[in-house]
């Protein structure tokens, strides 16, 4: 199987929907192939939402939104896990921010929390002046 898909999007928030729908569809195809049945919707939603979060994070972090930045999304898979990575050329960020305290009505900061909770493994790295956020979820 080991599909490999790379997609490139303009760094604009209006493309977040497209990117997350694409992620949901890739997850859908993957889950059919490996035979996730009952939890398929949940699996696909995890990818849809995580990519949406990573994408809007990237757009928000852009140093200069005017430049024609690109956000590159790659999918790869192993026998029983699907990985999506989101790459951008923005300044580095700290991936270890603590979860917000909901009772103090925070209006943002849920993004990474959601990704962490929905995915099995989240890796962040900085290479060649690029941010790379890789997110892995196991089937079943």
């Amino acid at each position: 199987m080991d599909t490999f898909i790379t997609m490139s999007f303009p760094s604009e928030i209006s493309y977040a929907r497209l990117a997350s729908n694409a992620a949901s569809m890739v997850a859908e195809i993957f889950s059919r192939q490996v035979g996730i049945w009952e939890k398929r919707q949940e699996f696909c939603h995890a990818f849809e939402l995580s990519v949406a979060e990573a994408f809007s994070n990237s757009v928000r972090n852009a140093a200069n939104p005017e430049t024609d930045g690109q956000i590159i999304i790659c999918f790869s898979s192993d026998q029983n896990e699907l990985m999506v990575s989101v790459r951008d050329t923005n300044p580095a960020f700290d991936p270890d921010i603590p979860a917000p305290d909901i009772l103090s009505y925070p209006d943002r900061g849920y993004g990474l929390l959601l990704i962490r909770q929905l995915m099995d493994q989240v890796l962040y790295s900085r290479e060649n002046d690029m941010n790379l956020l890789s997110m892995i979820k196991k089937a079943g």
């Binding site: 790869s76 990575s85 270890d96 890796l123 962040y124 790295s125 790379l132 890789s134």
Partner: peptide, 16 residues
């Protein structure tokens, strides 16, 4: 070959 950095908590030393 993808490299990702991995932050883990070292309980012994109490730091990340």
């Amino acid at each position: 070959w993808k490299t990702g950095s991995f932050t883990f908590h070292d309980i012994r030393q109490g730091k990340n």
